[in-house]
Design a protein around this nucleic acid. Structure first.
Lengths: 215, 215
DNA sequence: GTAGCATTCAAACGCCCGTTTTACCTACGA
DNA sequence: TCGTAGGTAAAACGGGCGTTTGAATGCTAC
């Protein structure tokens, strides 16, 4: 009756125990939260022994960190690459910078294979304000936000440093939340995935630019 | 050494058991999440017996609902009142509608007495996508969003119904997240609380209007 | 004062949690 | 062929969870 759907598909022998745990954890953290999803649920969904989490990751907290690392390494690399290219162009305002930040995440949220779940996990992390997690993210990816911060600061010279800092934080939070919902919303028929992605990005960029340029 | 600070203050005899539980639950749900905060933590913070939660509220899930009801009854009444006044004026665009939605929440997030914590609880609820909670909110406060939806639809006639629906959802989510952070951010010295509130509202309204007007 | 009800309390219920332990596989290089 | 290391397995650890119980209290109305 039920063929292997996309959720169970990766619980097969084609993926290592570590990969299956990470995939199942991502799905369940997105759905139930970090505190709400138990290791017993994760290991059952991954078709793996309960002790495997502590064997491969040491602890639940570290598993959470690795769920982030797996996606953020690539995501932030794409962001920095896009930022570099945006900075090569003549100064054309905030929009190219926002594109560099948003488009890699939107690609992730719309692709197959769990990226959509991860974007929802990210949205949860923002809402959580979890200290340990924030430290991990700051330690590992703080330099990315620093690069973006510097680029925005250069294009918004009248905004003082502190003001810019929390505006970027709010913009990042709002965008993260919005992208988490884009993954859930199905696009209208007659619109290709590519068109949907481009329109979504446009909306978000206008949205964010207006917030940042507020006097 | 430690006088009664604002957190412990309401754990006194001046408040009923129910009120103390609601206050403590709000604080802890904001900090630790619904799954992360236990009834033992809540009752200890409220200086109340563990069994009091189930006696007065029946279950943890119902306690969560009542935490929302206590604030949302008043918040949404203020929103509808502000909406009615905005609709009396000649059509002046989206901004007055957004004001009617944002200002009551911003008042709550900046006031004393736990309102700030509640706005963070709201942000968590948005990120959670919890079905039971969404049903409760939709059952009890769906009519408010319907009123706003109708008002926005009238001012955005070129936007189709479905598109408007999820734009409003995203805007509400982004604003909720942003307001949760406003409560945390301390205003700069030399700026009165009133000024801070008005500037925050302005930024958010521009932000949201741009998102809604996107072509 | 006492009956009756609402509330509070300490204790226990069964269950699930993250983690650890210990034994058992199963390769692969010596 | 054997020894060993890396991985998996089942079971148990102590502890915290939401909820229930039944007795002890406080309070109001007669």
């Amino acid at each position: 009756m039920a063929g292997p759907d996309s959720k169970d598909f990766m619980n097969s022998q084609h993926f290592s125990t570590k990969e299956r745990i990470l995939g199942a954890a991502e799905q369940l953290f997105a759905r139930l939260g970090f505190a709400g999803a138990s290791l017993r649920q994760v290991t059952a969904a991954a078709n793996v022994n309960l002790a495997a989490v502590n064997y491969h990751f040491g602890s639940k907290e570290n598993l959470i960190n690795e769920v982030f690392r797996r996606r953020l390494d690539e995501l932030n690399a794409h962001r920095l690459q896009a930022l570099d290219e945006a900075l090569k162009l003549p100064d054309t305002g905030l929009e190219p910078l926002l594109s560099a930040f948003i488009n890699p995440a939107l690609d992730l949220s719309l692709d197959r294979g769990g990226g959509g779940a991860f974007v929802r996990v990210l949205a949860r992390a923002y809402a959580e304000h979890n200290d340990a997690l924030r430290k991990f993210l700051s330690d590992n990816y703080g330099h990315v936000m620093k690069r973006f911060h510097a680029a925005f600061a250069q294009r918004l010279p009248d905004l003082d440093k502190e003001e810019l800092y929390w505006r970027l934080d709010i913009v990042a939070g709002a965008l993260t939340y919005a992208m988490a919902d884009f993954g859930v919303i199905k696009r209208k028929s007659g619109v290709t995935e590519q068109q949907h992605r481009e329109r979504s990005a446009e909306h978000l960029i206008r949205f964010a630019a207006a917030g940042l340029r507020a006097p």
